[in-house]
Design a protein around this nucleic acid. Structure first.
Length: 223
DNA sequence: AGCCGGATGCGCT
DNA sequence: GCGCATCCGGCTG
């Protein structure tokens, strides 16, 4: 259950701060996806910070392109990208306009609209798997590139995507560690944040450099 | 319970 | 062309 006084949208000023402040502060907040069907509401349990031009792990590291343009825009908007040929991931733009930082929403606990979420994620074996992982979260909420650039601070209760106040996670329940699947110079910063012992948090996976075909062929010398 | 490969499209070098 | 802010199924122990 979500109390009425926890249902206020986060003001744009919330996102108008350094990404390393915003990211942990998003834990425990409520993400609401509204469609023609029942809305799905989830409590954020895991996020990652991406620090734009300063961050080799960020899509914005090499500057502005058509794809990452939203990251350079005003805070409080959704940056949605398509990856691995089949998945979408959702980020929230932070900092000031012109500074391309964002927070990747990696996991959450579905609170309402479970039927909707389950319909979109038929392979989830239990409720805690509905949004365990960034692409699963986007799938469970029916998020795709159509929502790229959406204002998540809109006052309109019918807006497609909103972030509500919820109950922020207390500091002593927040854990930090390296970002999942990020390699190279971006791998060292502990910019992944999650709520301790929450069953919806995704397992950590280190970056896996894809071996090239030549290396694979050399490995199987007997044929 | 943990590792590995395939699926699959597109952005960027 | 390469590699990706991933997920899932199938394999091994």
């Amino acid at each position: 259950m979500i109390a009425d006084h926890d249902r206020k949208p986060l003001p744009r000023a919330f996102f108008h701060r350094p990404v390393l402040e915003v990211a942990p502060d998003l834990l425990g907040r409520i993400l609401v996806r509204t469609t023609e069907d029942d809305p799905v509401e989830l409590r954020l349990t895991e996020v990652e910070a991406y620090a734009g031009r300063l961050d080799p792990g960020s899509h914005a590291y090499r500057g502005r392109t058509e794809r990452n343009a939203v990251m350079f825009g005003p805070p409080g908007h959704a940056y949605v990208y398509f990856t691995y040929g089949m998945w979408h991931c959702l980020n929230l733009v932070c900092d000031e306009e012109g500074t391309a930082s964002g927070v990747l929403l990696r996991a959450g606990e579905v609170l309402t609209g479970r039927e909707q979420a389950r319909g979109r994620r038929p392979k989830a074996r239990n409720d805690s798997e509905l949004a365990k992982g960034p692409a699963r979260l986007a799938t469970a909420l029916g998020i795709d590139r159509v929502l790229n650039g959406t204002d998540v601070c809109a006052d309109d209760p019918g807006a497609p995507l909103r972030v509500l106040t919820g109950t922020p996670a207390p500091d002593h329940r927040i854990r930090t560690g390296p970002r999942t699947g990020v390699g190279g110079a971006g791998a060292t910063q502990p910019w992944r944040y999650w709520i301790a012992d929450d069953p919806s948090v995704s397992p950590y996976r280190a970056h896996q450099p894809r071996r090239r075909r030549a290396a694979l062929d050399a490995g199987s010398s007997d044929v």
